[in-house]
Simulated scan of single mutants.
Amino acid sequence: MTPVLVSSAGRRGALVRAFRDAGAVVHGCDMQPELSSGCMLADHAHQVPRCTAPDFIDRIEDIVRANGIRLIVPTIDTELMAYAEAAPRLAAAGAYVHVSPPEVIAVVRDKTRTMEVLAAADLPVPDTCSEAELRAEPDRLGWPVFGKPVGGSASRGLGSYDSFAVLPDSFPEPMMFQPVLKGPEYTVNIFVDRAGQLQTVVPHLRIQTRAGEVEKGRTTRRADLRALAEGIVRALPQARGVLCFQVIDDAARGPRIIEINARFGGGYPLAHHAGAHFADWLMAELAGRPSGASDDWRDGVTMLRYDDAVFTG
């Protein structure tokens, strides 16, 4: 059995189970592991400092060396750069970090830069401007506009504004603005093998979301969304492993890419149940075997999430 560390395990119980089913002894880590259902469902749990703390990687390396961890799986945006920069160090300690290189993380963690890189690759993205640009030219996007933090995640700081008059006088962090898009939203889960080849593209319709994660979704095979995935991999040729991106299929403009997450998405369990076993494929690559990744997954699979509980003591 291969020891795997799911970082910032939080509520990622389904991801823990996916790696256990793939043949892993699963370790979870979190700031308060005793309050993390993902950690409690793991075989072993570890306490770590916040991922922005100066000793975060020191603690991760200690866990790796003490437990023979072979694979580290980050799960939140804010820890990606720390892991990307520390990947060589952690590899020397014996663990492969499932993360794209820092050059890729720098793009996807800056939503304005993401839009610029994708637009330069002729991929469809919404018109985008900074707060300063919007204030200097209020009608450049039309109204209403949608604002979000440049470095945001987990739906933090999102807002829709019907006119310049209701725009706040200031924001607590750098913001970007786009026209309000109207239409169904999709998450597209992709798997890029270690050779940089796009192997799998699994879109799912986000029927209903909660706190930024899909609560009800349905796999939907669409050639146009696969073409967008191919374009993203061309635009970010160093991307590796599991990524996901969001698309709004605007009624007037057509599909528009709104962001990329270089990690397992919260809706991964739907892709896994439909036959896209990313966890198994990463484990196969770790063992030096062909991943077995393919695009053979089931269309029309619906996920209906519900609240469950983990009890301790």
Rank of each mutant, 00 (worst) to 15 (best):
I248P: 07
R234C: 12
L198K: 09
F146R: 04
L282V: 08
G13K: 09
S36F: 04
Y96L: 13
R156P: 00
K111V: 03
R305H: 03
R253V: 10
W281I: 01
F56K: 01
S163Q: 04
D21Y: 02
D162L: 13
P138V: 08
D224P: 01
D55A: 10
D224H: 11
P138T: 05
L228V: 02
W143K: 03
A87S: 15
P54I: 06
V48F: 05
L123Q: 08
L134E: 00
G241E: 05
A279T: 15
S291R: 04
R70E: 15
S163F: 04
W143L: 04
I76Q: 12
G275H: 10
V25M: 02
M40K: 11
L225K: 03
A136L: 09
F146N: 02
E213I: 15
F311A: 13
L243F: 13
T114H: 08
D296A: 14
G212Y: 06
M115N: 12
A227Y: 02
S160G: 08
H273S: 14
V26P: 12
G68N: 12
N261F: 00
A165N: 11
M176P: 00
T220I: 07
M1E: 12
D43F: 11
A262C: 10
P124G: 09
P184Y: 07
V97M: 08
A24I: 05
Q246A: 12
A14E: 15
D30I: 09
G159H: 05
G313F: 12
F56N: 03
T219S: 14
G300R: 08
A293D: 05
M175C: 10
L35I: 01
G159M: 06
V99M: 08
M176S: 05
A284I: 02
K148D: 04
V242S: 09
L118K: 07
M115L: 05
P255F: 05
R140S: 04
A239E: 08
V16Y: 06
I232V: 14
Q199F: 00
S8R: 11
F56H: 12
G23C: 07
I248V: 15
L90C: 09
D127T: 09
F171D: 02
P255R: 06
Y161T: 06
R218I: 13
R221G: 02
V16D: 07
P179Q: 08
R135E: 01
L225D: 06
D110K: 07
A45K: 07
G152D: 01
D280K: 14
E173G: 00
I76P: 04
R218K: 14
S130E: 11
R89A: 09
V26M: 15
R210W: 12
A92L: 11
H44P: 00
L123G: 03
L243G: 03
A284R: 15
L228D: 00
R222E: 10
I207Q: 14
A271D: 02
R70P: 04
S7T: 15
L167G: 10
C244Q: 10
V201C: 11
G313A: 15
G152M: 02
P3D: 11
L80E: 11
R113H: 13
